[in-house]
């Protein structure tokens, strides 16, 4: 078994809004292992990004607040340590890349300056020349051609894919234990998307970090992840290893997501049929239904799901496979 790097238990994150307190993340638990990738999948607003930002303690407070749970990084609860210690972990031991490569880099500083800043902060023993060389090395590592020249360029002189490579170079500069990738390829072309995912996979093999891949794209999950957690309305509704999840989805929501991946007939290359969709909308966090959050969109919902039995609880139905559903699909 690989080394357990991160253990999140019963994480609760609430946001204060004009319409009252909402729970964006509700009792979420998962583990991240060295050299493995955990996928967190869900629709917009399901709480996946908030979960990621909580690990970095980057939830804007106010209005957000981590209301409960623990986030243990190598046995130390990140929610207990002083902010200064947290800062020395950010970008150093746990790094993050974001969805919007176009705006995530600071437009008025050179790419080199922004990468060197990480070394300046976390490896202050390095000389100026060393920092520059290491920045060039990082750009080379993420496959940016002529890095000696690129290092003096500004973000606007690079394409979206190149900028995301720079973000990756920056996040991996200190060889972190964990990389959190918040929809790293959503804003990119499909071809560039494949390149970036491949690059991350390759760098994971070389550097051995654990990755948390946050995405709404099950295609990305199938390609990159070892384990998956499916989130819905701030809860994890199903978690398993990739093979099990795709082969035997237990939660109707997971099943719906998998069915709505476009598939092609392998001989003719033609789309087989009309793509099934999950009917209805995600309920508002202000107005969650009694019982199961998914009841209004679920074909097999019964009175049990709608009634006063409370929410379904995440329970293990097979080794390493948990689901929170009153009527799991069964093998």
């Amino acid at each position: 078994m690989a080394e357990k790097l991160l253990e999140v238990r019963d994480l609760v994150v609430k946001f204060k809004t004009d319409r009252g307190l909402v729970t964006a993340v509700n009792n979420v638990s998962f583990d991240v292992f060295r050299g493995k990738t955990l996928g967190i999948v869900g629709e917009s607003g399901s709480g996946k990004s908030v979960t990621a930002l909580s690990i970095m303690r980057l939830i804007p407070n106010p209005p957000g607040q981590i209301a409960g749970g623990t986030i243990s990084f190598k046995g130390k609860n990140l929610l207990d340590i002083p902010l200064d210690n947290m800062r020395s972990i950010r970008g150093n031991k746990i790094a993050m890349i974001f969805q919007e490569p176009m705006t995530s880099l600071n437009p008025v500083f050179t790419v080199g300056n922004q990468i060197e800043e990480v070394f300046k902060l976390h490896q202050s023993e390095l000389s100026k020349a060393d920092r520059k060389n290491k920045a060039i090395e990082m750009l080379k590592l993420v496959g940016i051609p002529s890095p000696e020249k690129r290092i003096n360029e500004y973000p606007h002189q690079l394409s979206g894919g190149m900028r995301q490579r720079v973000m990756i170079a920056m996040s991996l500069a200190c060889q972190p234990d964990i990389l959190i990738a918040d929809e790293p390829t959503t804003a990119l072309d499909v071809t560039i998307q494949a390149q970036i995912l491949e690059l991350m996979k390759k760098l994971q093999d070389e550097l051995g970090m654990g990755i948390i891949m946050i995405t709404h794209d099950l295609g990305v999950v199938a390609e990159t992840c070892d384990d998956v957690a499916v989130m819905y309305c701030g809860n994890i509704v199903e978690t398993a290893d990739v093979k099990t999840l795709f082969g035997h989805p237990q939660h109707p929501y997971t099943k719906g997501l998998i069915e709505s991946i476009p598939s092609f007939d392998s001989t003719t290359g033609i789309k087989k049929e009309r793509l099934p969709t999950i009917e209805g909308m995600v309920p508002s966090l202000f107005d969650l239904p009694k019982g199961c959050n998914f009841q209004d969109r679920c074909k097999s919902a019964s009175d049990k799901c709608r009634g006063g039995n409370g929410e379904p609880i995440l329970a293990e139905i097979a080794s390493g496979h948990q689901v929170s559903c009153f009527h799991p699909m069964n093998y």
Partner: peptide
Amino acid sequence: YQDYVRTARSKGLG
């Protein structure tokens, strides 16, 4: 509130 500020925080800057 720009994204680059969040990036800077995620790097560990004060």
